[in-house]
Amino acid sequence: MEIVGFIAACLTTAAFLPQVYKTWKTKDVSSLSLPMLVMFFVGICLWLIYGVYKESPSMICANAITIVSAIMLIYFKLKYQKQ
Rank of each mutant, 00 (worst) to 15 (best):
K77L: 13
L37A: 01
S56K: 09
K27F: 03
S58P: 09
T12R: 07
Y75N: 11
L73D: 04
M39E: 01
K82L: 01
I60A: 11
L73S: 03
S31K: 03
G51R: 04
E55N: 09
I3D: 10
P18A: 14
G51D: 13
Y75D: 04
T12G: 09
V52A: 08
M36T: 06
L34H: 02
E2V: 08
W47L: 12
V52M: 14
P35R: 10
F16D: 02
K54Y: 09
L17I: 15
Q83T: 04
S58Y: 09
G43H: 08
M72H: 03
L46Q: 07
I3M: 12
L73M: 14
Y21C: 12
I49R: 08
K79R: 14
Y80Q: 01
N63K: 06
K22W: 11
L11A: 07
Q81V: 03
W24S: 12
Y80L: 00
A8D: 13
Q19D: 05
W47D: 14
L37C: 00
V4P: 08
A8K: 11
V68E: 11
I44A: 04
V42L: 13
K27C: 01
F40G: 01
M72G: 03
Q81K: 10
D28T: 04
W47I: 12
N63A: 11
A14P: 10
I74C: 02
K22I: 06
T66Y: 13
T26N: 12
M39H: 05
Q81N: 13
C61M: 14
L17N: 09
K25M: 06
L37G: 00
K77R: 14
G43I: 02
L48S: 04
I74S: 00
K82V: 03
L73Q: 09
L17H: 07
A62S: 15
Y50C: 08
G5S: 09
P57I: 14
K82C: 03
L11Y: 05
G5F: 14
G43T: 10
Y80H: 01
D28H: 08
Q81P: 00
K25Q: 15
M72Y: 10
M1I: 06
V42G: 00
E2F: 10
V29F: 05
F6M: 13
C10T: 15
C61K: 05
Y21E: 09
Q83N: 00
L11P: 02
G51Q: 05
L34D: 01
Y53N: 07
I65P: 04
K25A: 08
V4L: 15
K27A: 05
E2K: 05
F40W: 00
K54C: 07
S56N: 11
V52K: 05
I71T: 13
F6D: 11
